[in-house]
Nucleic acid binder design. Sequence first.
DNA 1: TCTGGGGTCCTAGGACCC
DNA 2: TCTGGGGTCCTAGGACCC
Length: 416
Amino acid sequence: MFALVDCNNFYSTCESVFRPDLRGKPIVVLSNNDGCVVARSAEVKALGTIKMGVPVFQVKNEIAKHQIAVFSSNYTLYADMSHRVMRILRSLSPGLEIYSIDEAFVDVRGIQDLIEFGTMVRSTIKQWTGITVAVGMAPTKTLAKLANYGAKKFPGTGGVVDLRDLDRQQKLMSITPVGEIWGVGRRTTKALNALGIETALQLRDADMQDIRRRFSVVLARTVSELRGMPCIVLEDQPSPKQQIVTSRSFGQRITSRDAMRQAICEFTERACAKLRSGGQYARALTVFIQTNRFLEDVSRRYSNQATGNLAHHCSDNYQFIKLAQQLLERIWREGCEYNKGGVILGDFLKTKQMQFGLFEKPKRDNSSVMEAIDTINSRIGSVRFASSSGYQHWAMRRDSLSPAYTTRWSDLPLVK
DNA sequence: TCTGGGGTCCTAGGACCC
DNA sequence: TCTGGGGTCCTAGGACCC
């Protein structure tokens, strides 16, 4: 038995928890660079005119008209609030899989009264963090997701749904559009609709072999899960990463090679720091740069990437920065207005054992230097390589950033 | 003028091996 | 006119998730 616990309107709730004056008011939270709407409060969802993911400039009038409060993404705040929620969940159940920043699967095997448990989870999290969650419980992950959908969609449930009962499953599936099912995206929805499959129930009762043939093994598994046969297990041990991406849209367009080199070097540094924080080693690095992909004039569009390998695996800023600069030289095109760039670390070592080449002398090991840098950066801010320091004209736009209420002493809310 | 960031998995096709 | 069978590895692209 799985429970899926999912925070309601997570980012927007994180903002309103510390702004009681905004409770019950419409709120949107924007993506990095203040580009798109990525979270909406219940009041905004109810308006129906501001869709998830819409570019903010397209809904400027709507925002003004309804006096919607706008926030830039404050990931420091959201990550901290997420940790608080997850810590509570872990204390309530030993089996926990943190699935994303705002949701987790919980192992609820052996719990007799699921509704009682779900209600307790909900009220505890609400009281201790101010965050409201919905709880859906069922014998497979896909059904638990569906139960959670029901808990959010129908207020009469009190935000908690136990979907063990087969009749109840059938009833909910019959009124749930197939596109709401976990694993069924936009493209698949369209293709399924074309076959006459509109509801979750119709997908559950479709011919499994036919689904396997027409679509993929992934969708066939979804069908199986809808029938109550679990195919996806609880992964309470986080599996090691296979790649690390660090990329940004720039606040202002970059046209000079020097500024781009600086940005790419900084991305590389950050990616290596993430790598070390997971105790991993990588060998491949990809650098990519692109102009605005929405440019009308196609001749001004440019996008390219280059991949290179180090002689052996490492997690050393120094070597990856050197490689990153060589790769950038291969793809740099003069005269373009770049609006995004990034790096991808790949080809990770499967074990924690370092393997050197047979005929090469082990290079000087910088790990103690890296460790020192990481320690300093985690406490008091930034020690940087010279290659990535300098002017930050490209820093992302965050015009409506809220304070770091829970992680910076000077930002602590005052109670009068 | 303005359009996010970070991931995973699957499939098809090409290059190569014997 | 006619061109095998069995395999691995890599990459690009697509689909999905939050």
